[in-house]
């Protein structure tokens, strides 16, 4: 529950429907194992949410997400915007009085969301990461112009943010030609672990 003493506009976190009878702690257990962080120490002080620069773009603040995880609301957690909007700046982790590595938990949750193939709440962010990986697979290095070009193709947001792209081109910040790793076979081999099966 949110703190009732706060003014109403600060209480605008959507209230998920929690069905206690259906509690399943398998996701919580998996996250705890893979992140190596015991988040049951969390006492909902909200330091993580208060310090997060991106919290206004999240559907649940990080502390609420932890609570949902503890209550076994797996789908709500994995399909939240929160895990994708997190940029991994670690502000939450460094501010947590209980030394919970919140950013590490977000990292594992994104991974599990991709592995389980759930609906991704911010598909544009996943598209972006996939375009970066395509570039890395092909060249071994990030070719930013190519990444942005294919990202635009994927998301069909052609004209949004056009002026920034043009400014960067004018300042020669976007290389036209990619630079490529010579031993590209060594790079291709690394991609067999995830990429091949998924496509």
């Amino acid at each position: 529950m949110m703190n009732p003493s706060l003014p109403e506009e600060e209480n605008d976190v959507p209230m998920p429907v929690i069905k206690p009878g259906e509690r399943d702690r398998s996701l919580a257990e998996e996250v705890r194992k893979r992140s190596g962080t015991n988040f049951n120490r969390c006492f909902q002080c909200r330091s993580c949410g208060n310090g997060c620069p991106f919290v206004q773009a999240m559907d649940y603040p990080p502390n609420v997400l932890l609570r949902l995880l503890q209550y076994g609301q797996d789908q709500t957690v994995l399909e939240s915007k929160t895990i994708w909007v997190c940029a991994g700046c670690h502000t939450c982790s460094s501010q947590c009085p209980m030394a919970i590595d919140m950013a590490g938990i977000m990292d594992i949750l994104r991974l599990i969301a991709v592995e389980r193939g759930v609906a991704i709440a911010k598909p544009n962010i996943l598209d972006f990461h996939e375009e970066v990986l395509r570039s890395l697979e092909r060249y071994g290095r990030a070719h930013k112009l190519g990444i942005m070009w294919r990202y635009k193709l994927q998301t069909r947001r052609w004209f949004s943010d056009m002026d920034t792209g043009l400014k960067m081109l004018a300042k020669r910040k976007l290389e036209l030609r990619p630079s490529r790793v010579k031993a590209i076979k060594e790079i291709e081999d690394l991609f067999k672990c995830y990429w091949r099966e998924a496509k």
Binding site: L111, H129, L136
Partner: peptide
């Protein structure tokens, strides 16, 4: 000589083994 991308947050997000391999190379 012949360095490659460190993997960046994109590899870190999508595959831990890939992320480790890119940096380790």
């Amino acid at each position: 000589e012949d360095w490659n991308c460190c993997g960046s947050s994109s590899a870190q997000t999508l595959c831990k083994n890939l992320s480790l391999g890119m940096a380790a190379r």
